[in-house]
Simulated assay, not measured.
Amino acid sequence: MSGAEVAGVIAAVAFLIIALAVAIIAIRLSSVTKEIKNTVAEVNQTLDTVNGEIKPLTNEIEALLTKSNTLLNDVNGKVAAIDPVFTAIGELGESVSDLNTSTRNLAAKVSTGAKNSAKVTVAAKVGQRAAAMFSKKNEQTTK
């Protein structure tokens, strides 16, 4: 065997190793591709199932939202109808407060007037006694 033949054999063996490596990689790539294909099929099946179950749920949610909106509109209408009642109650409270203030002022004036009236009464009694004493003195001096 000459050097060229040995080189040819080495090149053939190297080519055979490269071909085997490519074949192994191709086989592994083929199995990975099959697994990916199976996974995608399972995902599609799961999505079909989920989509089938979501439709009735979506319909129920839409019905619930419609009922909630109706209820909210009803509550808003009733609150709007009650607002004047609360306004009237607030005004009534202010009126009662004003009445209490007026009553206190009147009581203070009556109390002040009663004190002044008591002073006038004492002064009138003193004046009556003085007048009685003066008149008695005049009667005695004229007799």
Rank of each mutant, 00 (worst) to 15 (best):
K55L: 13
P56T: 08
K55T: 10
A26C: 07
A41R: 06
Q45E: 11
A21H: 11
L20D: 03
T46L: 13
K55P: 03
I18H: 03
N51I: 04
I17Q: 06
E35W: 10
V50Q: 04
V40H: 14
I54E: 05
A19P: 04
I27K: 12
A41P: 04
K55G: 05
P56I: 07
G52D: 06
R28E: 14
T58D: 10
A41I: 13
N44C: 01
V40M: 01
N38P: 13
T49D: 11
R28D: 04
N51S: 15
D48N: 13
I25W: 14
A23V: 08
I27Q: 00
S30D: 02
D48H: 01
V43E: 01
S30Y: 05
S31W: 14
P56K: 00
G52R: 07
P56R: 04
E42Q: 15
L29V: 12
V43W: 07
V50K: 00
P56A: 09
L29F: 08
R28P: 04
K37A: 13
T39Y: 02
T33D: 13
I24Y: 07
I17H: 10
L47H: 00
N51D: 05
A23C: 06
I25N: 13
T33A: 15
A21L: 08
K37L: 13
K55V: 13
V32R: 09
V40F: 02
Q45Y: 14
A19Q: 07
T58A: 04
R28W: 13
E53M: 12
Q45I: 09
G52Y: 12
A21W: 08
I27G: 02
T49M: 10
S31A: 01
K55F: 11
A21G: 08
T39P: 04
L20K: 03
T46K: 10
T58S: 00
I25K: 12
T46H: 00
T46E: 15
V40N: 15
A19R: 09
K34G: 01
I54C: 06
N38H: 07
K37G: 12
E35F: 06
A19D: 01
N51E: 11
V50G: 03
K37P: 05
N44I: 03
G52M: 06
A41N: 14
I27R: 01
T49N: 14
A23T: 02
L47K: 02
N44Y: 10
I36A: 08
I27A: 10
V32L: 07
V50M: 05
L20H: 08
K55E: 03
L20Q: 08
S30V: 11
D48F: 02
L29T: 13
N38I: 03
S31P: 03
A26H: 02
I17L: 09
L57T: 05
N51H: 07
I27N: 00
S31Q: 05
K55Q: 15
T39N: 01
V40R: 07
A21E: 09
V50H: 09
I17R: 11
A41Y: 12
Q45L: 06
T39R: 11
I18N: 00
T46R: 02
A19N: 11
V43C: 08
I36L: 02
G52S: 02
E42M: 14
E35T: 14
T39F: 14
E35Q: 09
L47D: 03
N44P: 04
S30N: 12
E35M: 13
N51R: 10
T33P: 09
P56Q: 06
G52C: 04
T49H: 11
L47G: 00
A41C: 02
I18A: 13
